[in-house]
Simulated assay, not measured.
Amino acid sequence: MKALIISDSHGLTEELLTIKERHKNEVDFMLHCGDSELPATSSEMSEFSAVRGNCDFDSRYPEDMVVLLNGANVFLTHGHLYNVKMTLMNLSYRAQEAGANVVCFGHSHIAGAELIGEILFINPGSIRLPRMRKEKTYVILEIVDKKAKVIFYSSDGIVIEELKTTATLQLKHNRE
């Protein structure tokens, strides 16, 4: 299964629609980590499971959520409530409480993916105002069995090879 992950689009509309159209037949989920600055009911945000960022004023967005992606619990948040510009510790504690295997967040606009302990942290960067890179970025996350593959794309759809990340997830099967 694959998920498109985007964050910090800060009012962009055409770019969101272009990226959605580019990958609509390739992904099973579309996740937005906040700061879209668009109403939850807008056509640009349709198809996205989205959370509220510090620049979002539509109260219909939740602060965070957990989605199930091919056996992995994916915790989605913007990051401002967890002080992610300073440390990932608070977010890590919250992810552990939520039973997350993967955490998707934004806020810092810094693209990156890293396995910390047993949790894969993904920040797709920003398609509006990237920091620490010139490329405006988003991510496709693929989870097959327990293998996670994170591929970063520039906003024009070109793979950014040096940011590719793979990780083995420690998935726990639910007892029914």
Rank of each mutant, 00 (worst) to 15 (best):
K136T: 00
Y82W: 05
K134P: 03
T166S: 12
F152M: 07
E118C: 03
E14H: 13
G112R: 04
Y93M: 11
G99I: 06
A167R: 09
M30W: 05
I160M: 10
T13D: 04
M89P: 00
G11N: 13
N83S: 11
Y82C: 02
S9N: 12
L115S: 02
V27G: 13
T77R: 05
D156P: 09
T87L: 03
L4P: 12
Y93C: 03
D64Q: 09
K20H: 04
T41D: 13
I5T: 12
E14K: 15
T41H: 07
D56G: 09
N123P: 03
V139A: 06
A167Y: 08
V103S: 13
H80M: 01
N73Q: 06
R60H: 12
S9M: 11
P62V: 10
I160V: 15
E97L: 12
G53T: 09
S46F: 04
T137M: 04
I19W: 10
K149H: 10
M45P: 02
E97R: 13
K85R: 13
I151H: 00
E118S: 13
E162K: 15
S49Q: 14
A113I: 10
I19S: 13
E44P: 04
S7P: 01
V74G: 03
A98F: 11
L120D: 08
S154V: 05
F57D: 14
S42Y: 03
D56Q: 11
R52D: 06
D35L: 05
R94Q: 14
A50C: 07
S155V: 12
E162F: 07
L12Y: 06
S7K: 07
S43G: 08
Y61E: 01
M86T: 08
K24H: 14
F121R: 01
R52N: 08
A95H: 03
R131D: 04
Q170L: 13
E63G: 06
T87P: 02
E47C: 03
T137R: 00
E176C: 01
H109L: 07
H80T: 00
L38S: 05
K134T: 11
I151D: 11
K85G: 13
E161I: 12
L17R: 09
S9W: 10
